[in-house]
Structure formats: structure tokens, C-alpha cells
Amino acid sequence: NITNLCPFDEVFNATRFASVYAWNRKRISNCVADYSVLYNLAPFFTFKCYGVSPTKLNDLCFTNVYADSFVIRGDEVRQIAPGQTGNIADYNYKLPDDFTGCVIAWNSNKLDSKVSGNYNYLYRLFRKSNLKPFERDISTEIYQAGNKPCNGVAGFNCYFPLRSYSFRPTYGVGHQPYRVVVLSFELLHAPATVCGPKKST
């Protein structure tokens, strides 16, 4: 009989979030998941669920729940959905087409922007091929755009693959930082360890 609440607040209220290319994953298990708490945590810009209804979450049980978190800019949030393409979905964080879970995003301009520009958040701009779903690539190998090998040196047709967002508070919403948490629900042929409040007794 599990009584402890799932530590969603640790994920959502973390002081620092990860850069999207090096997104963070927390496995959540053996706890009571009260998803209604999430609705009250922040004024969400996005709370979209796929393959599951957000209002039914509190009635369900899962084997595992994974919470992935990272920062992107406002106009990239739409890429965090099944079947999307674009720089983020292709080279940084890719959801599977049959994704079961929820994408939660909110504006973090007050936390993640600086007047002089916050350069701490990076994204991958160049990659030889698209990522597979939930693949994480943290390599910093020089990207070869031409025929000549780069031998690890940046220059003509040889690019450092990561680029930094420079978040400034005066930017338009599309270029402001957004914190994203992706909850993916895993149903294996194994005992369910993460249940809503109704199912945990």
C-alpha cells in the first residue's frame, strides 16, 4: 500500500533546468501520483496529453512515469509533440509517434532571462542524422558540413554543433524561455507502482 506522493514538485520547481540537447530525465515510481497538483503548480502555457485524457490521469496506474525536463524558446514548444519536425524535434528531443503522456510548458522569462542575455541554455544546431525517439546526444564533436574532414577544428564548413540561446527579458514571447516537462507513461507487463490517489488504497 503506497502512500508517499510522487515528487513532481522537485521536477517542476527545480531551480535550474537542463539545456534541451542534454535534457534531464527523472524516473518516478512507487508513489501516489496526484496530477491535479500539477494544474495548480504554475499558470501553464501548455498542458497537452496524448493517448490519455488529462482529467482521467488520477484514475490510472502505470509501471513507471518518466519526467523529462529542459528549456526551449516559446515558438519551439509546438515541436514537443508526436510527429513534429524542426531543429528541436530533429536534433535535441524527439517524441515517438505513439507517445503516451503529457507535455507541460510554461513561460520562464522571469527566471531564465537576463538583461545582458542568459547564454547558459544550449541547443544542438547541427547533426548528421535525426534523433530516434527519446535519444539523447550530448556530443560536442565538430560538425563537418563540407567534404573536407574537420579534424576537430572549427572553421570553414566545420561547425561547433551547439548554439546558445541568449534569453533577454525584452524579447518577444516566441523568443522567451519556456520550461518544459514531458511526462511519459510506461505500461509494462509488470506491477503498477505509480497510481492516482483513488487507485492507491
Rank of each mutant, 00 (worst) to 15 (best):
N1L: 10
T3W: 10
N4H: 13
C6F: 07
C6P: 05
V11Y: 09
A14N: 10
T15M: 09
R16E: 15
F17I: 06
A18K: 08
Y21L: 04
Y21P: 04
A22S: 12
W23M: 02
I28H: 06
S29C: 08
V32M: 11
A33W: 15
D34M: 07
S36L: 08
V37A: 14
L38F: 13
L38D: 04
L41R: 14
A42L: 13
P43R: 12
K48S: 08
K48D: 08
C49V: 04
S53M: 12
P54M: 15
T55F: 12
K56V: 10
L57E: 07
D59T: 13
F62V: 12
V65S: 07
A67T: 06
S69L: 05
V71F: 01
V71G: 01
I72N: 01
R73Y: 00
R78F: 07
I80R: 02
P82F: 02
P82E: 01
T85I: 08
G86C: 02
N87S: 12
A89D: 01
L95H: 01
L95G: 01
D97N: 13
D97Q: 12
D98F: 09
G101R: 02
C102M: 05
A105H: 09
W106C: 04
N107Q: 04
S108D: 00
K110W: 07
L111R: 12
D112M: 03
S116W: 08
N118Q: 07
N118I: 05
N118V: 04
N118G: 06
Y119V: 07
N120G: 13
L122G: 12
Y123F: 15
S129V: 12
S129D: 13
N130V: 14
L131M: 08
K132V: 10
P133C: 04
E135A: 08
R136V: 06
D137T: 03
T140N: 12
T140A: 12
T140H: 12
Y143H: 07
G146R: 02
N147A: 07
N151D: 12
N151H: 12
G152M: 07
A154I: 10
C158P: 01
Y159C: 00
Y159E: 00
R163G: 15
R168W: 01
V173A: 11
V173T: 13
G174C: 03
H175R: 01
V180L: 06
V182S: 03
S184M: 09
F185A: 06
L187F: 12
L187C: 11
L188D: 15
A190D: 13
A190L: 14
V194M: 11
P197R: 15
P197S: 15
K198T: 14
K199Q: 13
S200Y: 15
S200Q: 14
